[in-house]
Amino acid sequence: MAARLLYCAAAVSALAVLAILAFLVYFSLPLFQGDQLAALFSWHWRPLQNEFGILPMIAASLALAVSSMLVAYPLALGVCCFAHGLGPDWAARPLLVAVRLMSSVPTVVYGLVAAFSLVPLIRGASSGSGLCWLAALLTLAVLALPTIVLLLDNQFQRLESEIRLTAAALGLTRVQEMLQLTLPLSSRGLVMAAILGFGRALGDTLVPLMLAGNAPQPPLSLLDPMRTLTAHIALVVATDSQSAAYNSLFACGLILFLLTVLVNLGLRRIRTGATAHG
């Protein structure tokens, strides 16, 4: 009896994700009729002229996620290496506590602070409004940093307990142990952290919505405004436009969903590879 109830609960939880997929597919079906699909993959989003191209948003989402990773990843790696040998031992714990605290800061708070500190700085230094790719990139990097650090920290901790004796027997210093053993040995963990951080950056809505300026145009310059898929979904729903815009909305959702599946498959592939090779 109990087992059956528990099975049902787990089945409901597992089916939730399929329900989301089913709804997205169902509502984007009208797009697969006629030439709507070709219209979807164009560079122009002008609802008033019946042009609903979402390529600028796809490009912006990918560009923002990759670029914020380029900033966050090296920093996160630095923080982890510092906490595991490159820095003094006493500093490791407080540093990780600070990272945990960072992870508990609500996204909207980061958005608010950046909108009234970072954006005016950029506005002062350039000619635009300050709401641009760069502002969203830097804030998103801060947001994704704790995710990467905590995952890497976990990996390093596990690895260190295995290699500590070997490293000591070889007469390696803590710095050498980190650079010569821990880092090369955790290559899979390093890739996983990068993918996970990328997924986190790709899925965030509030930061691009509040900071990136939301102009539907291809991301060509760091100081130009951009509109990501996530922000686009929020904006279209909020502005209540015509039904053709709604359809493209679900196409955006479907693309985001597929990107998430890719990220997850990537993670899974690396993880099963890791267990197969010991």
């Binding site: 939880s13 089916l15 994700v17 989301i20 709804f23 899925g203 979904i233 929020a234 998430t260």
Partner: peptide, 28 residues
């Protein structure tokens, strides 16, 4: 395996898609 895969996938889904799901549910 199947259940954990679905639940891991759910964990990775951007929150805006949960919102979109709710919105679609209302339309439906």
């Amino acid at each position: 395996l199947a259940f954990s895969f679905c639940i891991e996938l759910l964990a990775g889904i951007p929150s805006i898609l949960m919102g979109l799901f709710g919105f679609a549910l209302i339309l439906f």
